[in-house]
Design a protein around this nucleic acid. Structure first.
Lengths: 242, 242
DNA sequence: CCTCATCATGATGCATACATTCTACGGATG
DNA sequence: CATCCGTAGAATGTATGCATCATGATGAGG
Protein backbone atom coordinates (compact mmCIF):
# COMPACT_ATOMS: atom_id res chain seq x y z
CA UNK A 1 0.00 0.00 0.00
CA UNK A 2 2.71 2.47 0.93
CA UNK A 3 4.01 3.91 -2.27
CA UNK A 4 7.20 5.21 -0.77
CA UNK A 5 7.70 2.04 1.21
CA UNK A 6 8.09 3.82 4.48
CA UNK A 7 8.65 1.66 7.49
CA UNK A 8 6.17 1.94 10.29
CA UNK A 9 8.73 3.77 12.39
CA UNK A 10 9.40 6.25 9.61
CA UNK A 11 5.71 6.85 9.24
CA UNK A 12 5.32 7.54 12.92
CA UNK A 13 8.30 9.87 12.88
CA UNK A 14 6.92 11.80 9.93
CA UNK A 15 3.52 11.96 11.59
CA UNK A 16 5.04 13.31 14.78
CA UNK A 17 6.80 15.96 12.70
CA UNK A 18 3.53 16.97 11.05
CA UNK A 19 1.75 17.18 14.38
CA UNK A 20 4.51 19.28 15.91
CA UNK A 21 4.32 21.71 12.99
CA UNK A 22 0.53 21.92 13.19
CA UNK A 23 0.51 22.44 16.93
CA UNK A 24 2.26 25.77 16.47
CA UNK A 25 -0.40 27.29 14.27
CA UNK A 26 -3.76 25.90 15.29
CA UNK A 27 -5.75 26.78 18.34
CA UNK A 28 -8.68 24.44 18.75
CA UNK A 29 -8.11 20.72 18.97
CA UNK A 30 -10.16 19.92 15.93
CA UNK A 31 -8.17 22.35 13.80
CA UNK A 32 -5.01 20.62 14.95
CA UNK A 33 -6.36 17.20 14.03
CA UNK A 34 -7.76 18.48 10.74
CA UNK A 35 -4.51 20.08 9.60
CA UNK A 36 -2.38 17.16 10.74
CA UNK A 37 -4.43 14.37 9.21
CA UNK A 38 -4.79 16.36 6.01
CA UNK A 39 -1.03 16.74 5.74
CA UNK A 40 -0.53 13.11 6.66
CA UNK A 41 -2.79 12.02 3.82
CA UNK A 42 -1.32 14.47 1.31
CA UNK A 43 2.24 13.45 2.15
CA UNK A 44 1.45 9.78 1.87
CA UNK A 45 1.89 8.85 5.53
CA UNK A 46 -1.69 7.63 5.52
CA UNK A 47 -2.19 5.73 2.29
CA UNK A 48 -5.38 4.99 0.33
CA UNK A 49 -7.65 2.49 2.04
CA UNK A 50 -6.16 3.07 5.49
CA UNK A 51 -8.74 2.90 8.24
CA UNK A 52 -8.85 5.90 10.53
CA UNK A 53 -9.96 4.69 13.95
CA UNK A 54 -11.25 7.54 16.06
CA UNK A 55 -9.92 6.22 19.34
CA UNK A 56 -6.48 5.58 17.88
CA UNK A 57 -6.24 9.10 16.47
CA UNK A 58 -7.57 10.57 19.71
CA UNK A 59 -4.75 8.89 21.59
CA UNK A 60 -2.14 10.10 19.09
CA UNK A 61 -3.30 13.71 19.43
CA UNK A 62 -3.93 13.52 23.16
CA UNK A 63 -7.57 14.55 22.83
CA UNK A 64 -10.94 12.89 23.04
CA UNK A 65 -12.78 11.42 20.09
CA UNK A 66 -15.09 14.41 19.63
CA UNK A 67 -12.67 16.78 17.87
CA UNK A 68 -11.33 13.83 15.88
CA UNK A 69 -14.82 13.04 14.61
CA UNK A 70 -15.41 16.60 13.51
CA UNK A 71 -12.07 16.86 11.76
CA UNK A 72 -12.71 13.61 9.89
CA UNK A 73 -16.13 14.87 8.86
CA UNK A 74 -14.47 17.98 7.45
CA UNK A 75 -11.98 15.87 5.53
CA UNK A 76 -14.87 13.89 4.15
CA UNK A 77 -16.23 17.07 2.59
CA UNK A 78 -12.78 17.79 1.18
CA UNK A 79 -12.85 14.39 -0.51
CA UNK A 80 -9.80 12.97 1.24
CA UNK A 81 -11.65 10.43 3.39
CA UNK A 82 -14.96 8.59 3.13
CA UNK A 83 -17.30 7.27 5.79
CA UNK A 84 -20.24 4.95 6.22
CA UNK A 85 -22.54 5.01 9.24
CA UNK A 86 -21.28 2.75 12.01
CA UNK A 87 -18.39 1.65 9.82
CA UNK A 88 -15.95 4.47 10.28
CA UNK A 89 -13.63 6.48 8.07
CA UNK A 90 -11.12 5.38 5.45
CA UNK A 91 -8.66 7.28 3.27
CA UNK A 92 -10.03 7.52 -0.27
CA UNK A 93 -8.18 6.24 -3.31
CA UNK A 94 -7.88 7.87 -6.71
CA UNK A 95 -8.32 5.67 -9.76
CA UNK A 96 -7.67 6.70 -13.34
CA UNK A 97 -11.24 7.94 -13.85
CA UNK A 98 -10.99 10.16 -10.79
CA UNK A 99 -7.84 11.75 -12.13
CA UNK A 100 -9.49 12.41 -15.47
CA UNK A 101 -12.48 14.04 -13.79
CA UNK A 102 -10.41 16.20 -11.48
CA UNK A 103 -8.15 17.45 -14.24
CA UNK A 104 -11.05 18.20 -16.57
CA UNK A 105 -12.61 20.25 -13.80
CA UNK A 106 -9.35 21.96 -13.02
CA UNK A 107 -8.90 22.99 -16.65
CA UNK A 108 -12.45 24.33 -16.71
CA UNK A 109 -12.27 26.24 -13.43
CA UNK A 110 -8.68 27.43 -13.50
CA UNK A 111 -9.08 28.71 -17.05
CA UNK A 112 -12.09 30.69 -15.91
CA UNK A 113 -10.12 32.00 -12.95
CA UNK A 114 -7.23 33.09 -15.16
CA UNK A 115 -9.55 34.89 -17.55
CA UNK A 116 -11.23 36.67 -14.67
CA UNK A 117 -8.01 37.49 -12.80
CA UNK A 118 -5.77 38.84 -15.55
CA UNK A 119 -7.73 42.03 -16.33
CA UNK A 120 -7.92 42.79 -12.61
CA UNK A 121 -4.21 42.42 -11.80
CA UNK A 122 -2.71 45.43 -10.05
CA UNK A 123 0.97 46.28 -9.68
CA UNK A 124 0.84 45.12 -6.08
CA UNK A 125 -0.57 41.80 -7.19
CA UNK A 126 2.19 41.36 -9.73
CA UNK A 127 4.85 42.22 -7.16
CA UNK A 128 3.50 39.60 -4.79
CA UNK A 129 3.32 37.08 -7.60
CA UNK A 130 6.91 37.79 -8.61
CA UNK A 131 8.06 37.06 -5.08
CA UNK A 132 6.03 33.87 -4.82
CA UNK A 133 7.28 32.79 -8.23
CA UNK A 134 10.89 33.26 -7.17
CA UNK A 135 10.27 31.24 -4.03
CA UNK A 136 8.76 28.54 -6.19
CA UNK A 137 11.73 28.42 -8.54
CA UNK A 138 14.25 28.31 -5.73
CA UNK A 139 12.52 25.65 -3.69
CA UNK A 140 14.76 22.81 -2.67
CA UNK A 141 12.70 19.82 -1.69
CA UNK A 142 9.71 18.59 -3.71
CA UNK A 143 7.53 19.29 -0.67
CA UNK A 144 8.64 22.91 -0.61
CA UNK A 145 8.17 23.24 -4.33
CA UNK A 146 4.63 21.95 -4.17
CA UNK A 147 3.75 24.18 -1.22
CA UNK A 148 5.13 27.34 -2.83
CA UNK A 149 3.44 26.48 -6.12
CA UNK A 150 0.11 26.23 -4.33
CA UNK A 151 0.72 29.62 -2.73
CA UNK A 152 1.51 31.19 -6.10
CA UNK A 153 -1.61 29.93 -7.83
CA UNK A 154 -3.81 30.64 -4.84
CA UNK A 155 -2.59 34.23 -4.81
CA UNK A 156 -3.27 34.60 -8.51
CA UNK A 157 -6.75 33.11 -8.42
CA UNK A 158 -7.70 35.10 -5.34
CA UNK A 159 -7.48 38.25 -7.44
CA UNK A 160 -10.83 37.26 -8.92
CA UNK A 161 -12.50 37.98 -5.59
CA UNK A 162 -14.63 34.87 -6.03
CA UNK A 163 -14.48 32.72 -2.91
CA UNK A 164 -16.42 29.77 -4.29
CA UNK A 165 -14.36 29.53 -7.45
CA UNK A 166 -11.12 29.72 -5.48
CA UNK A 167 -12.37 27.25 -2.89
CA UNK A 168 -13.35 24.69 -5.51
CA UNK A 169 -9.99 25.02 -7.23
CA UNK A 170 -8.11 24.59 -3.96
CA UNK A 171 -10.15 21.51 -3.12
CA UNK A 172 -9.51 19.92 -6.53
CA UNK A 173 -5.79 20.72 -6.49
CA UNK A 174 -5.57 19.23 -3.03
CA UNK A 175 -7.30 16.07 -4.09
CA UNK A 176 -4.67 15.24 -6.69
CA UNK A 177 -1.70 16.61 -4.73
CA UNK A 178 -1.23 13.12 -3.29
CA UNK A 179 -0.51 11.51 -6.63
CA UNK A 180 1.40 14.48 -7.99
CA UNK A 181 4.27 13.83 -5.66
CA UNK A 182 5.21 10.50 -7.13
CA UNK A 183 3.89 10.76 -10.67
CA UNK A 184 5.55 13.96 -11.85
CA UNK A 185 8.58 14.64 -9.77
CA UNK A 186 10.24 17.83 -10.94
CA UNK A 187 8.43 17.23 -14.17
CA UNK A 188 8.64 20.72 -15.61
CA UNK A 189 9.34 24.07 -14.11
CA UNK A 190 9.57 25.78 -17.48
CA UNK A 191 5.83 25.45 -17.95
CA UNK A 192 5.22 27.73 -15.00
CA UNK A 193 7.68 30.21 -16.43
CA UNK A 194 5.85 30.32 -19.75
CA UNK A 195 2.54 30.61 -17.97
CA UNK A 196 3.71 33.45 -15.76
CA UNK A 197 5.18 35.28 -18.73
CA UNK A 198 1.73 35.26 -20.36
CA UNK A 199 0.21 36.43 -17.06
CA UNK A 200 2.69 39.30 -16.83
CA UNK A 201 1.67 40.69 -20.20
CA UNK A 202 -1.99 39.98 -19.60
CA UNK A 203 -2.40 37.50 -22.45
CA UNK A 204 -5.22 35.35 -21.10
CA UNK A 205 -5.55 33.15 -24.16
CA UNK A 206 -1.89 32.18 -24.08
CA UNK A 207 -1.91 31.65 -20.32
CA UNK A 208 -4.94 29.41 -20.55
CA UNK A 209 -3.40 27.50 -23.42
CA UNK A 210 -0.24 26.81 -21.43
CA UNK A 211 -2.22 25.82 -18.36
CA UNK A 212 -4.61 23.52 -20.18
CA UNK A 213 -1.90 21.86 -22.21
CA UNK A 214 0.18 21.25 -19.13
CA UNK A 215 -2.71 19.77 -17.18
CA UNK A 216 -3.66 17.51 -20.04
CA UNK A 217 -0.12 16.18 -20.22
CA UNK A 218 0.15 15.73 -16.46
CA UNK A 219 -3.19 13.95 -16.34
CA UNK A 220 -2.03 11.49 -18.97
CA UNK A 221 1.19 10.82 -17.05
CA UNK A 222 -0.64 10.24 -13.80
CA UNK A 223 -3.24 8.03 -15.41
CA UNK A 224 -0.54 5.91 -16.99
CA UNK A 225 1.24 5.63 -13.67
CA UNK A 226 -1.93 4.63 -11.85
CA UNK A 227 -2.83 2.02 -14.42
CA UNK A 228 0.63 0.50 -14.17
CA UNK A 229 0.38 0.52 -10.39
CA UNK A 230 -3.01 -1.17 -10.57
CA UNK A 231 -1.65 -3.79 -12.96
CA UNK A 232 1.31 -4.43 -10.65
CA UNK A 233 -1.04 -4.81 -7.72
CA UNK A 234 -3.25 -7.27 -9.56
CA UNK A 235 -0.19 -9.30 -10.53
CA UNK A 236 1.04 -9.22 -6.96
CA UNK A 237 -2.24 -10.53 -5.65
CA UNK A 238 -2.31 -13.32 -8.19
CA UNK A 239 1.24 -14.33 -7.27
CA UNK A 240 0.73 -14.19 -3.54
CA UNK A 241 -2.69 -15.75 -3.89
CA UNK A 242 -4.59 -13.14 -1.88
CA UNK B 1 -35.89 39.48 7.93
CA UNK B 2 -38.53 36.93 6.96
CA UNK B 3 -39.22 37.43 3.31
CA UNK B 4 -42.52 35.63 3.39
CA UNK B 5 -43.49 37.33 6.62
CA UNK B 6 -44.35 34.13 8.37
CA UNK B 7 -45.53 34.43 11.92
CA UNK B 8 -43.51 32.68 14.53
CA UNK B 9 -46.25 30.09 14.93
CA UNK B 10 -46.33 29.42 11.22
CA UNK B 11 -42.58 28.97 11.22
CA UNK B 12 -42.73 26.49 14.05
CA UNK B 13 -45.54 24.61 12.34
CA UNK B 14 -43.58 24.43 9.08
CA UNK B 15 -40.49 23.33 10.97
CA UNK B 16 -42.42 20.57 12.73
CA UNK B 17 -43.67 19.43 9.33
CA UNK B 18 -40.13 19.32 7.96
CA UNK B 19 -38.89 17.36 10.95
CA UNK B 20 -41.71 14.85 10.72
CA UNK B 21 -40.92 14.26 7.06
CA UNK B 22 -37.21 13.87 7.74
CA UNK B 23 -37.73 11.51 10.64
CA UNK B 24 -39.17 8.91 8.26
CA UNK B 25 -36.10 8.68 6.06
CA UNK B 26 -33.04 9.24 8.19
CA UNK B 27 -31.48 6.87 10.63
CA UNK B 28 -28.81 8.59 12.68
CA UNK B 29 -29.69 11.69 14.64
CA UNK B 30 -27.23 13.87 12.82
CA UNK B 31 -28.72 12.92 9.46
CA UNK B 32 -32.10 13.92 10.79
CA UNK B 33 -30.84 17.28 11.97
CA UNK B 34 -28.87 17.83 8.77
CA UNK B 35 -31.81 17.14 6.46
CA UNK B 36 -34.25 19.12 8.57
CA UNK B 37 -32.16 22.24 9.03
CA UNK B 38 -31.19 22.17 5.37
CA UNK B 39 -34.84 22.10 4.33
CA UNK B 40 -35.68 24.75 6.88
CA UNK B 41 -33.08 27.09 5.41
CA UNK B 42 -33.99 26.33 1.80
CA UNK B 43 -37.68 26.87 2.45
CA UNK B 44 -37.07 30.14 4.23
CA UNK B 45 -38.13 29.06 7.71
CA UNK B 46 -34.67 30.02 8.91
CA UNK B 47 -33.77 33.28 7.22
CA UNK B 48 -30.35 34.82 6.50
CA UNK B 49 -28.55 36.00 9.58
CA UNK B 50 -30.53 33.78 11.94
CA UNK B 51 -28.40 32.43 14.76
CA UNK B 52 -28.46 28.67 15.17
CA UNK B 53 -27.95 27.91 18.84
CA UNK B 54 -26.85 24.34 19.38
CA UNK B 55 -28.73 23.87 22.62
CA UNK B 56 -31.93 25.26 21.17
CA UNK B 57 -31.77 22.97 18.15
CA UNK B 58 -30.88 20.02 20.35
CA UNK B 59 -34.04 20.59 22.34
CA UNK B 60 -36.15 20.91 19.19
CA UNK B 61 -34.88 17.60 17.84
CA UNK B 62 -34.84 15.82 21.19
CA UNK B 63 -31.14 14.99 20.96
CA UNK B 64 -27.94 16.23 22.54
CA UNK B 65 -25.73 18.93 21.07
CA UNK B 66 -23.24 16.51 19.53
CA UNK B 67 -25.23 15.46 16.44
CA UNK B 68 -26.39 19.06 16.06
CA UNK B 69 -22.78 20.24 15.96
CA UNK B 70 -21.88 17.75 13.27
CA UNK B 71 -24.89 18.56 11.14
CA UNK B 72 -24.12 22.28 11.34
CA UNK B 73 -20.53 21.62 10.36
CA UNK B 74 -21.78 19.72 7.32
CA UNK B 75 -24.07 22.60 6.38
CA UNK B 76 -21.10 24.92 6.68
CA UNK B 77 -19.36 22.94 3.96
CA UNK B 78 -22.49 23.18 1.85
CA UNK B 79 -22.35 26.94 2.18
CA UNK B 80 -25.73 27.36 3.88
CA UNK B 81 -24.36 28.38 7.29
CA UNK B 82 -21.17 30.00 8.52
CA UNK B 83 -19.34 29.71 11.82
CA UNK B 84 -16.61 31.39 13.80
CA UNK B 85 -14.77 29.72 16.68
CA UNK B 86 -16.57 30.23 19.97
CA UNK B 87 -19.13 32.41 18.24
CA UNK B 88 -21.47 29.83 16.82
CA UNK B 89 -23.35 29.32 13.57
CA UNK B 90 -25.50 31.68 11.53
CA UNK B 91 -27.46 31.24 8.31
CA UNK B 92 -25.55 32.82 5.44
CA UNK B 93 -26.96 35.56 3.24
CA UNK B 94 -26.59 35.92 -0.52
CA UNK B 95 -25.75 39.36 -1.87
CA UNK B 96 -25.72 40.35 -5.52
CA UNK B 97 -22.07 39.39 -5.99
CA UNK B 98 -22.71 35.93 -4.61
CA UNK B 99 -25.52 35.40 -7.08
CA UNK B 100 -23.31 36.48 -9.96
CA UNK B 101 -20.56 34.10 -8.88
CA UNK B 102 -22.88 31.13 -8.39
CA UNK B 103 -24.61 31.60 -11.73
CA UNK B 104 -21.33 32.03 -13.60
CA UNK B 105 -20.14 28.78 -12.07
CA UNK B 106 -23.42 27.05 -12.84
CA UNK B 107 -23.21 28.07 -16.48
CA UNK B 108 -19.66 26.78 -16.65
CA UNK B 109 -20.27 23.47 -14.91
CA UNK B 110 -23.73 22.65 -16.16
CA UNK B 111 -22.71 23.39 -19.74
CA UNK B 112 -19.84 20.95 -19.32
CA UNK B 113 -22.21 18.38 -17.85
CA UNK B 114 -24.64 18.74 -20.74
CA UNK B 115 -21.87 18.33 -23.30
CA UNK B 116 -20.62 15.23 -21.52
CA UNK B 117 -24.05 13.72 -20.90
CA UNK B 118 -25.76 14.09 -24.26
CA UNK B 119 -23.54 11.68 -26.23
CA UNK B 120 -23.94 9.10 -23.48
CA UNK B 121 -27.74 9.18 -23.21
CA UNK B 122 -29.37 5.76 -23.55
CA UNK B 123 -33.02 5.03 -24.28
CA UNK B 124 -33.53 4.14 -20.63
CA UNK B 125 -32.11 7.50 -19.61
CA UNK B 126 -34.45 9.31 -21.99
CA UNK B 127 -37.45 7.37 -20.71
CA UNK B 128 -36.63 8.33 -17.14
CA UNK B 129 -36.10 11.92 -18.16
CA UNK B 130 -39.44 12.01 -19.98
CA UNK B 131 -41.18 10.86 -16.83
CA UNK B 132 -39.37 13.37 -14.63
CA UNK B 133 -40.08 16.10 -17.14
CA UNK B 134 -43.79 15.32 -17.07
CA UNK B 135 -43.79 15.40 -13.28
CA UNK B 136 -42.07 18.74 -13.47
CA UNK B 137 -44.63 20.20 -15.87
CA UNK B 138 -47.59 18.96 -13.88
CA UNK B 139 -46.33 20.10 -10.49
CA UNK B 140 -48.84 22.10 -8.55
CA UNK B 141 -47.08 24.04 -5.82
CA UNK B 142 -43.87 26.01 -6.39
CA UNK B 143 -42.19 23.74 -3.86
CA UNK B 144 -43.14 20.66 -5.86
CA UNK B 145 -42.06 22.30 -9.08
CA UNK B 146 -38.65 23.14 -7.68
CA UNK B 147 -38.17 19.65 -6.22
CA UNK B 148 -39.11 17.86 -9.43
CA UNK B 149 -36.94 20.22 -11.47
CA UNK B 150 -33.97 19.33 -9.31
CA UNK B 151 -34.69 15.64 -9.80
CA UNK B 152 -34.84 16.09 -13.57
CA UNK B 153 -31.53 17.91 -13.86
CA UNK B 154 -29.82 15.66 -11.34
CA UNK B 155 -30.87 12.63 -13.38
CA UNK B 156 -29.57 14.21 -16.57
CA UNK B 157 -26.22 15.26 -15.15
CA UNK B 158 -25.70 11.91 -13.43
CA UNK B 159 -25.44 10.33 -16.87
CA UNK B 160 -21.94 11.79 -17.05
CA UNK B 161 -20.80 9.37 -14.35
CA UNK B 162 -18.77 12.16 -12.75
CA UNK B 163 -19.53 12.39 -9.05
CA UNK B 164 -17.52 15.54 -8.37
CA UNK B 165 -19.04 17.47 -11.24
CA UNK B 166 -22.55 16.44 -10.21
CA UNK B 167 -21.85 17.16 -6.56
CA UNK B 168 -20.58 20.65 -7.27
CA UNK B 169 -23.60 21.42 -9.44
CA UNK B 170 -26.00 20.18 -6.77
CA UNK B 171 -24.26 22.28 -4.16
CA UNK B 172 -24.42 25.42 -6.29
CA UNK B 173 -28.06 24.90 -7.27
CA UNK B 174 -28.89 24.39 -3.63
CA UNK B 175 -27.17 27.57 -2.62
CA UNK B 176 -29.39 29.73 -4.81
CA UNK B 177 -32.55 27.68 -4.35
CA UNK B 178 -33.43 29.93 -1.42
CA UNK B 179 -33.65 33.07 -3.52
CA UNK B 180 -35.17 31.33 -6.52
CA UNK B 181 -38.39 30.79 -4.66
CA UNK B 182 -39.23 34.47 -4.36
CA UNK B 183 -37.35 36.01 -7.27
CA UNK B 184 -38.64 33.96 -10.18
CA UNK B 185 -41.94 32.45 -9.28
CA UNK B 186 -43.26 30.44 -12.20
CA UNK B 187 -40.97 32.54 -14.33
CA UNK B 188 -40.78 30.31 -17.33
CA UNK B 189 -41.57 26.69 -17.91
CA UNK B 190 -41.15 27.00 -21.67
CA UNK B 191 -37.40 27.31 -21.29
CA UNK B 192 -37.16 23.81 -19.88
CA UNK B 193 -39.25 22.55 -22.77
CA UNK B 194 -36.89 24.08 -25.32
CA UNK B 195 -33.91 22.78 -23.43
CA UNK B 196 -35.30 19.25 -23.20
CA UNK B 197 -36.16 19.29 -26.90
CA UNK B 198 -32.51 19.98 -27.68
CA UNK B 199 -31.50 17.21 -25.28
CA UNK B 200 -33.85 14.75 -26.99
CA UNK B 201 -32.23 15.25 -30.37
CA UNK B 202 -28.74 15.38 -28.88
CA UNK B 203 -27.98 18.96 -29.92
CA UNK B 204 -25.52 19.97 -27.22
CA UNK B 205 -24.81 23.43 -28.60
CA UNK B 206 -28.48 24.37 -28.63
CA UNK B 207 -29.09 22.87 -25.18
CA UNK B 208 -26.17 24.78 -23.72
CA UNK B 209 -27.32 27.98 -25.41
CA UNK B 210 -30.78 27.67 -23.89
CA UNK B 211 -29.38 26.85 -20.49
CA UNK B 212 -26.83 29.65 -20.43
CA UNK B 213 -29.23 32.24 -21.72
CA UNK B 214 -31.81 31.25 -19.18
CA UNK B 215 -29.37 31.38 -16.29
CA UNK B 216 -28.06 34.75 -17.36
CA UNK B 217 -31.59 36.15 -17.42
CA UNK B 218 -32.49 34.60 -14.08
CA UNK B 219 -29.31 35.92 -12.50
CA UNK B 220 -30.15 39.44 -13.63
CA UNK B 221 -33.65 39.15 -12.21
CA UNK B 222 -32.40 37.88 -8.87
CA UNK B 223 -29.68 40.50 -8.67
CA UNK B 224 -32.18 43.24 -9.36
CA UNK B 225 -34.50 41.86 -6.71
CA UNK B 226 -31.71 41.61 -4.14
CA UNK B 227 -30.52 45.14 -4.80
CA UNK B 228 -34.03 46.45 -4.39
CA UNK B 229 -34.41 44.51 -1.18
CA UNK B 230 -31.10 45.88 0.10
CA UNK B 231 -32.15 49.41 -0.78
CA UNK B 232 -35.49 48.92 1.01
CA UNK B 233 -33.65 47.60 4.05
CA UNK B 234 -31.27 50.55 4.14
CA UNK B 235 -34.20 52.92 3.86
CA UNK B 236 -35.98 51.08 6.65
CA UNK B 237 -33.01 51.39 8.92
CA UNK B 238 -32.66 55.06 8.22
CA UNK B 239 -36.34 55.63 8.96
CA UNK B 240 -36.41 53.57 12.11
CA UNK B 241 -33.04 54.93 13.15
CA UNK B 242 -31.42 51.54 13.83
C1' DC C 1 -21.64 63.14 29.33
C1' DC C 2 -18.49 59.91 27.26
C1' DT C 3 -14.91 56.18 27.57
C1' DC C 4 -12.68 52.24 29.34
C1' DA C 5 -11.94 48.43 32.53
C1' DT C 6 -14.15 44.64 35.06
C1' DC C 7 -17.26 41.07 35.86
C1' DA C 8 -21.42 38.26 35.18
C1' DT C 9 -23.82 35.60 31.75
C1' DG C 10 -24.39 32.60 28.18
C1' DA C 11 -22.76 29.85 24.44
C1' DT C 12 -19.30 27.00 22.48
C1' DG C 13 -15.25 23.40 22.77
C1' DC C 14 -14.00 19.34 24.83
C1' DA C 15 -13.67 15.11 28.03
C1' DT C 16 -15.78 11.11 30.06
C1' DA C 17 -19.16 7.48 29.99
C1' DC C 18 -22.93 4.76 28.17
C1' DA C 19 -25.91 2.77 24.21
C1' DT C 20 -26.07 0.91 19.68
C1' DT C 21 -24.43 -1.43 15.78
C1' DC C 22 -21.22 -3.84 12.84
C1' DT C 23 -17.91 -7.67 12.39
C1' DA C 24 -15.58 -11.81 13.10
C1' DC C 25 -14.95 -16.07 15.25
C1' DG C 26 -16.66 -20.59 16.93
C1' DG C 27 -19.71 -24.20 16.91
C1' DA C 28 -23.70 -26.70 15.39
C1' DT C 29 -26.16 -28.63 11.51
C1' DG C 30 -27.34 -30.31 6.79
C1' DC D 1 -16.84 -30.45 4.41
C1' DA D 2 -19.46 -26.22 3.56
C1' DT D 3 -22.92 -23.18 5.40
C1' DC D 4 -25.52 -20.79 8.70
C1' DC D 5 -26.46 -18.89 13.19
C1' DG D 6 -25.33 -16.97 17.68
C1' DT D 7 -22.44 -14.61 20.57
C1' DA D 8 -18.32 -11.91 22.03
C1' DG D 9 -15.53 -8.17 20.89
C1' DA D 10 -14.67 -3.75 19.12
C1' DA D 11 -15.75 0.51 17.02
C1' DT D 12 -19.00 4.04 16.22
C1' DG D 13 -23.11 7.14 17.75
C1' DT D 14 -24.84 9.75 21.48
C1' DA D 15 -25.64 11.86 26.22
C1' DT D 16 -24.06 14.39 30.19
C1' DG D 17 -20.99 17.54 32.58
C1' DC D 18 -17.06 20.67 32.98
C1' DA D 19 -13.61 24.20 31.08
C1' DT D 20 -12.93 27.96 28.07
C1' DC D 21 -14.03 31.95 25.52
C1' DA D 22 -16.98 35.85 23.63
C1' DT D 23 -20.44 39.30 24.67
C1' DG D 24 -22.98 42.76 27.10
C1' DA D 25 -23.95 45.24 31.34
C1' DT D 26 -22.23 47.93 35.09
C1' DG D 27 -19.62 51.23 37.41
C1' DA D 28 -15.49 54.16 38.02
C1' DG D 29 -12.67 57.68 36.05
C1' DG D 30 -11.67 61.51 32.86
Amino acid sequence: MEVERLSRDDQNAKLAEIIAAARQQNVTAQELVLASVRNAILSGVMGPGARLRQEELAEVFGTSRIPVREALRALEYEGLVASEPHRGFTVTALDADDVEEVYDLRILLESEAVRLALPLLTDDDLEDLEQLFQAMQSAESPDQQLASRERFYLRLYSVTGRPRLVGLIVRLRQEVARVLRWATIQHSSSIHEHFFEAVRVGDADRAVAHLSGHYRRVAILIRRYIKEAEARERADRRTRGG
